[in-house]
């Protein structure tokens, strides 16, 4: 579904993506992991068209997406920090995002799932970080798209909402969708991810299922296995 070939990106002297190749098949949950500065966010932003690569190609369903924008109608993105225009209300924001996408949305169930009914007429500037993140999640999951990209989705969520989020992700997977997640919480990865994509020095260092990773590193614990991968960087 996603074909990334020989992707290069540097910010000034700092090379972030250095000839990255990645191919992701349709369906399943992929955790994109790597140490700080390994290029996770850059990779995702390149996929979204927010960062423009120096060279390389990205294709979605065999179609080149660089420099285009219509393809984004077929993906949902949950940004890391949710910061909305402070003077709009929650319902206005939802209306606006719906307005921007030529696609049917189903936000009602999500709003009640996260208990946001009472906040609908509140201004976004007055919401707490957790509530903003819930709004963020509603905005992401209210559209039916085959690719879902989640950047640190668990930030600021209370345990109940976290459970709801996991259920949501599982539901989407059950519908055969492709989900990319970046996170630093290994237990979350362990619980939910089918495959791990591990980035190091701007390249894919490991790609495969959690079981394979554990076997290769000889650790039973995912966190320890990842730690070993990272330590190789400093070796």
């Amino acid at each position: 579904m996603i074909e990334i070939k020989d992707l290069h990106k540097s910010f000034g002297k700092l090379t972030v993506l250095d000839g990255l190749d990645l191919s992701i098949k349709k369906g399943g949950i992929f955790a994109v992991l790597g140490p700080n500065g390994s290029g996770k966010t850059t990779l995702i932003k390149t996929l979204l068209g927010m960062v423009i690569p120096n060279s390389g190609s990205i294709a979605l369903h065999g179609q080149d997406i660089l420099g285009k924008h219509q393809y984004r109608n077929h993906l949902n993105y949950l940004p890391q920090i949710a910061n909305f225009p402070p003077n709009l209300t929650v319902s206005e924001l939802i209306k606006m995002v719906k307005n921007l996408r030529p696609k049917a949305a189903n936000e009602k169930g999500l709003i009640s799932l996260f208990g946001l009914e009472d906040f609908l007429s509140k201004k976004l500037g007055n919401l707490s970080g957790g509530t903003k993140q819930k709004v963020n999640i509603v905005l992401t999951f209210m559209f039916d798209s085959e690719l879902i990209i989640l950047d640190e989705p668990t930030t600021g969520l209370d345990p109940i909402s976290l459970i709801h989020l996991k259920q949501l992700i599982q539901q989407e997977k059950a519908q055969g969708k492709t989900i990319l997640i970046t996170t630093h919480i290994m237990s979350f990865v362990d619980e939910i991810a089918d495959e791990i994509v591990f980035l190091l020095d701007g390249k894919i260092y490991f790609k495969g299922s959690i079981e394979v990773l554990k076997k290769e590193t000889g650790h039973k614990d995912l966190e320890a296995a990842i730690a070993q991968l990272i330590s190789k960087q400093y070796a």
Partner: peptide
């Protein structure tokens, strides 16, 4: 101030 929001918008199918 609207940088993050701009990023959210950038993920929508609109030209930057």
């Amino acid at each position: 101030n609207s940088k993050e929001f701009t990023e959210l918008l950038l993920a929508q199918p609109i030209q930057r």
